[in-house]
Write a protein that binds this DNA or RNA. Structure first.
Lengths: 212, 212
DNA sequence: CCTCAAAGCGAAGGATTCTTCATATATTGG
DNA sequence: CCAATATATGAAGAATCCTTCGCTTTGAGG
C-alpha cells in the first residue's frame, strides 16, 4: 500500500531487460554515494550518471526529472524499513509489553544503523522533496503494525491506544533521527538507545490497564 | 558562547546606521518568507533581495555568500530558543522533578510552536548548511542549563545524570521535530505534547534516587 | 552647509544545471 | 539471421543562479 507518487514524480518505465535493471541499481547506488560525498546541493544529474557509469540520457529514461529519482530512492528505503518493523511486530504478537518495546526500538534503531551513512544521506535528500505522502504512508503502515502488536499484549491493555501509539512512534522516530544527526560516539548512541527503550517501557506501564 | 562561524560564513560587517539595521531585518524576514513560500531550492539571493525590497548588492554587503545568510538566520533563531530554555531552567531551580519536566517540555514546545511556520522553514534551511558547530553549541548550552536545573531538584537526585539528561533532551528535541514535520492537527499535537511530558516524567521517576 | 564614510544599487560576467532529442547499439522473439 | 523493440549516448539549448564592482545616494559629524 505504498503511496501513489504525484504524477510528476512517477517513474517513466520499468526495466524489462537485465541490463536495464543493472542500470537502475547503479543509478540508485550512485545517488547515495554522491549524496554522501558531495551533499544534496551538489547532487547533479550529470554527477550521478557519471558515478553510475551511465549517461545522463539513460537516467531520464527511467525518471522524468531529478526529484523523481530522489522520490524513488526514498520510497525504496522506507519500504525496507517498514517491512522490518512489520516483521518484528508480528513476531512479538502476544508477548509481554516489555518484550515488545525492546524489540520495536531495537528493530527500528537497527534498521537505521545498519548503514547509518545512507540513513543520514536520505534524511537530507528528503528535504525539498514532495514526499509528505510517502512519509504519511510509512507512518500509517508502521502505526497499524504496532497497534496490532500492542493490543495483543499478554500483560496489559490500554484506553486510547491510538494516542499512546502515535506518541510512542513519534518519540522513537524523532529520537533516532536526533541522535543520528548529532553524530555522537557509537558507545553513547548505544546507551541512549537503551535509555530510550526503558523510557518507552516506563511510559507504557504508566498508562496501561493491568491485566493480572 | 555562540559558535564561531567558519570564516567563509562570517558576516561581512555590522550595521552602523539605523537604516542598515532595518535592511538586515528585512533581509532576514524575507529569507523566511521565501523559504516558506518557495522552498529551499528556490531560495535565491535575487528573490530574497526582491522580497526584502533591497538590491542584491546590499545583501552582499553583509553576507559574503548565500550560505552565510542562512547560517546567520539559524544562529539568531537558536539563540532565542536557547535563551528561553535557560530562563525556564533558572526559574525552576530547586523545584520538584515534575514541575521541571513540565516546564521544560512546555518551554521548548512553545518556543517552536510560537511561529511554527518559521520553525519548519528553518528545519529545512539547516540542511546542506555547515552548521554542525551551531547545533553543537546550542546543544551544549541547553545541556548545561537542564543539568543545573535537574541537579537542584528538591525531590530527587541521579546517578549518571549526564546520560539521563542527554537522553531526555534527545527525546524532547527529536519528538518535537517529528511532530512538526508531520503537520498533524493542532489538537493532536497538544495531546502528544502532554503525553511526552508524562513520558519524560515517568522516565525520571524510574531512574531517580528518591530523596524522602 | 560640507565632506567623507556608510549604505545601496543592479546590470552583467561566469559558471552550473536540467532536460531533450537525434542517433547508435544491444537484445529478443520469430 | 532479421526485424522490432528496448536501451544507451552525450552534445547542446534554455534557464537559472551566484557574485562582483563601478557608481549613486544617504546620513552623520564638524
Amino acid at each position: 500500500m505504498a503511496a501513489t507518487p504525484p504524477m510528476h514524480l512517477k517513474a517513466r518505465k520499468k526495466p524489462r531487460q537485465a541490463r536495464a535493471a543493472a542500470t537502475l541499481d547503479a543509478i540508485f547506488e550512485a545517488t547515495i554515494q554522491v549524496l554522501l560525498a558531495e551533499g544534496l546541493h551538489r547532487l547533479t544529474t550529470t554527477r550521478v550518471a557519471e558515478r553510475a557509469g551511465v549517461s545522463v540520457g539513460s537516467m531520464y529514461q527511467y525518471f522524468p526529472n531529478k526529484q523523481a529519482l530522489l522520490y524513488a530512492l526514498n520510497e525504496r528505503y522506507l519500504d525496507i524499513v517498514a517491512e522490518k518493523v512489520e516483521t518484528t511486530c508480528q513476531n512479538k504478537h502476544g508477548a509481554t509489553t516489555s518484550e515488545m518495546v525492546n524489540a520495536l526500538v531495537d528493530a527500528y534503531w537497527q534498521a537505521k544503523t545498519e548503514r547509518s551513512d545512507v540513513t543520514r544521506a536520505l534524511y537530507r535528500s528528503a528535504v525539498e522533496l514532495d514526499n509528505e505522502a510517502l512519509i504519511e504512508a510509512f507512518a500509517k503502515r508502521v502505526d497499524a503494525a504496532t497497534i496490532a502488536m500492542l493490543s495483543s499484549a499478554s500483560d496489559a491493555s490500554y484506553v486510547n491506544l491510538a494516542l499512546i501509539n502515535t506518541t510512542l512512534l513519534s518519540v522513537i522516530f524523532g529520537t533516532v533521527r536526533n541522535v543520528f544527526e548529532r553524530d555522537l560516539p557509537a558507545a553513547l548512541e548505544a546507551e541512549i538507545r537503551d535509555q530510550l527503550a526503558m523510557m518507552c517501557l516506563c511510559y507504557l506501564e504508566a498508562v496501561r490497564i493491568s491485566k493480572t
